[in-house]
Amino acid sequence: MSEDIKLIVNGKRIDGRAFDELRNIRIEAGVLKNADGSCYLEMGRNKIMAAVYGPRKVQPRHLADPVKAIVRYRYNMAPFSVEERKRPGPDRRSVEISKVSREALESIIMTELFPRSSIDIFVEVLQADAGSRTACLNAASVALVDAGIPMRGIITSVAVAKVDGHIVLDPVKEEDNFGEADIPFAFFIRNGKIESIALLQMDGKLTKNELIEAVKLAKKGVMEIYKLQREAIMKKYIVEDVE
């Protein structure tokens, strides 16, 4: 199948981007009235809505942890988000994504400050292209900041793929489907510096050197996204100032 489609032509990718170029990103914070924190994010053709509630009472009560807050993360794809209608509700894939994303965010949220409470994060994929889990993490992270939840830093996430032997940043659907490897990253960023990797998954095969190159590329891309995340939050409060 991959022989039929040329993914890289004249050093440009299928959508005309350079290897280290991100898709267009638009982030808006505080879009939902009833959530404590929320965010709408577009990353290429991905359209994501994230909502954060909490800290609040744990429902059902027996899940409560007496020493720290529990974090719940729900990644859900809308039935209309993909070309072929997706059966609604959680499936194997979205349960897995919810788990790994939750663990990434748990590592930076100061859960020990809120015993016997829960922080609930809901992210809905309204339209999916490749890299929806990374877009969801970026949106969730902005929503958490918007909710005023104490955190050690911010999570920013981006995927890297290997396509026709080249390492490329932020793949689109065609590159993801017909490429050789796809690696989503999430980084813990503090004070504008990358502190650690909070999430790393991989499907496909890479050599050691290619992986090192992928990490470098991801770090570069993530800093750009981090700036956009910051701007989105700042913008919300500066607009209020003008009123």
Binding site: V145, P150, M151, R152, G153, I154, I189, R190, N191, R230, I233, M234, Y237, I238
Partner: peptide
């Protein structure tokens, strides 16, 4: 100024 979590 406005600060975000993790700002030094």
């Amino acid at each position: 100024s406005i600060v975000l979590p993790g700002d030094l």
